[in-house]
Design a protein around this nucleic acid. Sequence first.
DNA 1: AATAGTGATTAGTTTTACTCATATGAGGAG
DNA 2: CTCCTCATATGAGTAAAACTAATCACTATT
Lengths: 294, 294
Amino acid sequence: MTLRHFEILRAVAETGNFTRAAERLYITQSAVSHAIRELEERAGTALFDRLSKSVQLTKSGRLLLEEILPILASCEALDARINFLEKRAPLHIVSSITIAAFWLPKILKAFQKDWPDIPINVDVVSAANAIEILRNGKADIALIEGAAPQGPFISIPFASYPLYIVCAPDYLITHRELTLQEFCTEKLLLREKGSAIRDTLDSVLYLAGHTAQPVWTSVNSLALIEAAKAGFGITILPDVLVGELLSQGKLISLSVQDLLLKNDLIAVHHRDKYLTAPLRALLFHIESTQSLGP
Amino acid sequence: MTLRHFEILRAVAETGNFTRAAERLYITQSAVSHAIRELEERAGTALFDRLSKSVQLTKSGRLLLEEILPILASCEALDARINFLEKRAPLHIVSSITIAAFWLPKILKAFQKDWPDIPINVDVVSAANAIEILRNGKADIALIEGAAPQGPFISIPFASYPLYIVCAPDYLITHRELTLQEFCTEKLLLREKGSAIRDTLDSVLYLAGHTAQPVWTSVNSLALIEAAKAGFGITILPDVLVGELLSQGKLISLSVQDLLLKNDLIAVHHRDKYLTAPLRALLFHIESTQSLGP
DNA sequence: AATAGTGATTAGTTTTACTCATATGAGGAG
DNA sequence: CTCCTCATATGAGTAAAACTAATCACTATT
């Protein structure tokens, strides 16, 4: 009992004639005869009465036909859509806050011009969570800041942004060029551990034998900006967030010896996960993003 | 894209493992691998991500699986019922009035003991109509009285009943044994042309050079009985209808030289129509009916 | 009686589905 | 680090299935 048998049964029922059913299916009458007989043997009863000039469904045949018609219809509908499976599968993106705010909108706008029908799902999470979600296969791609993660992943750097070490103009400070050691003794307003900026800072300090002991920790960069503006201390933030404040003179920029001044953005996907055409297109748009980035 | 591919896809999705899917289906892992690849080539995208120890449906794979599950379920439900197609197909019987009233109840009761689930449909029609319905394939079997019909039919005589020529005791008549000619000059109360009794009578008279000119014609034998009881004339009726009245003396029996005294009952079916098991059983019960008949 | 139109049958061929044997690759254990 | 286990992939060969070609048998029509 295959779909083929069902197709042949339907053709015979519709033409009332083995020979014409065969012509419609581009096979020989003999093949039709075989197929119907196999079905009849399987059913244990005749499906057609053979009249002299035509065949006619028996009651059993009619019952069977009624059952197979919807099955055939489903399969044919499926067959028509199977080429477009990818176009109906949603893309799941996890992204850091900053990338989601400043890069992702442009990327997705460009992507959706090419693939307007792909549903897109964005989750904003920390870098560490992003990788975990990727590992579990719950997302197709992660856009994070910082270093390429260990594990079964493929990382593609696609942009970077400068970081500024800033404080309020009235924040009391001896010089605008600090050593690492001096920096560590200042009042530091920092992002939480696990965030790209903080992790990079911590590792640089660790290698130099220092430790940052922030007076203020926040998961939200905007809170750090406000704290810095109010003169509570020194913070490190992306140019996209503080560029305008610097030019307005509401914050001033410091420099610290040997301290990183930029953050890398990377797109990460699971090594073993198949790249669908839409996903490849998305990656292409991400890679083309460097020039768009601030 | 065959049902087999769908079965394999489902097995892999459920086990998350080509090898175990193969074991479940009693085929080799290689066959599973081939089948999945064919589906993936057809779909133009991966359906499973190959992880190191297992495989996992991609989003496209999940979409496809959702579509094929109901199809597979329908096919399996069908497969379970296909053996019993005959048991769901109704039998369509056409029958003459007399047979329907006096023989059919016993026959159907016996039949339904063996095949309790077969729906049965009885239409009571004239003999001529019965054959026409049979010719069009609208009925499976006809139970009629009279001669075997011409055409692509198989007729099985299964019983016969005596006919009585009767009139009221007070009906004025010279003798109780009439010649054909005398009979024709009496007031005749007869069934309509096309009925078994009338057709047989007419043909006997025609061969002897006579014609019946009834004073009363009815499609309903009971009306003829009442007319005869009231002394309107002579009628010819089956023993099952008049036997009791004769023994009560409300009607008396006459004899007519060379005139038929019995009617044959035959079961007729179309030569080209397949005999299902239930239909064969019904025919068997009909043939066993002789002894049951009155 | 000849003929046209139909399905059935059977032997042979092509195609498909599957197996067998082997390659390949990722993890984990010694 | 190498070897072993546990996976899938691949390719050649085989068995099974589907199909073809040729012919038969039957019915109805001319």
